[in-house]
């Protein structure tokens, strides 16, 4: 990941195995569905008069989309955690921060200076760069866990007392005290994800153009190519 084994210019290293890539794109789709449907649950569409209430299920379908995408995302996340154990070492990188490594902190500083236009040359990274690793950990691992847990706590209310979601997550309401507050926190979490998406998509494309390795294609074919024409 850092500088100990520098790849040759023009070399390609296999980084992301297919389950990681599949998870990435499926996750992106679920998150998109969750944001859109979640927005319309908090602020519903204008009233529609398609038919009698019996024949109309607009809010019902929006909620269904939200719950279905949420459950699929959870299954995907669990699968991703499983793959962190059985996959290659790149599959583990997002799940921890090597705070005890001095070299990692050096790389963090270097990467921050590169983004602040204070370094003329970016670092070279086979996996995530250290800043990306921090972002993945904070937003994807911590943030998504938060959204899944609060989401299921809210879902438990509809599933009602004694149901499996209630037995697993219902206690959170009692710990927090008020379900309305839980809604607000879950809603705030959505913006946390939107902020991550904005930065993630921008930086992935920027690094694809400006850094010394591929980004976007790596998440499609799994190979990280190094494009230096001068010695690294």
């Amino acid at each position: 990941m850092s500088h100990h084994t520098l790849p040759r210019p023009g070399a390609s290293v296999f980084v992301y195995e297919w389950p990681v890539r599949l998870w990435h794109w499926a996750n992106a789709l679920f998150i998109l569905v969750l944001i859109v449907s979640g927005w319309f649950i908090a602020r519903p569409l204008p009233t529609m008069q398609i038919g009698e209430a019996t024949h109309q299920f607009v809010m019902g379908y929006i909620r269904f989309a939200h719950f279905a995408a949420g459950q699929l995302l959870t299954v995907g996340f669990l699968g991703r955690i499983y793959w962190a154990f059985v996959g290659n070492h790149h599959a583990r990188q997002a799940f921890y921060l090597p705070l005890w490594q001095k070299s990692w902190w050096r790389d963090v500083l270097h990467e921050a200076r590169w983004y602040a236009f204070l370094e003329s040359r970016p670092g070279i990274h086979v996996g995530h760069n250290p800043l990306a690793q921090i972002a993945m950990f904070l937003f994807m691992v911590v943030g998504m866990t938060f959204m899944i847990v609060t989401g299921f706590a809210l879902y438990a209310e509809g599933a009602q007392r004694g149901s499996l979601p209630d037995q697993l997550f219902g206690w959170l309401h009692d710990a927090l005290g008020n379900s309305q507050l839980m809604h607000s926190l879950h809603h705030l979490g959505m913006y946390f994800v939107v902020i991550f998406m904005t930065a993630h998509i921008y930086l992935a494309i920027r690094e694809d153009i400006m850094s010394r390795q591929t980004m976007v294609s790596t998440m499609i074919n799994g190979y990280r190519s190094f494009k230096d024409d001068d010695a690294a």
Binding site: L45, T47, M48, A53, Q56, F57, V58, M59
Partner: peptide, 11 residues
Amino acid sequence: RPHFDAGQFVE
């Protein structure tokens, strides 16, 4: 509740 599920709200 049926009006909620239908997406019919007092505005």
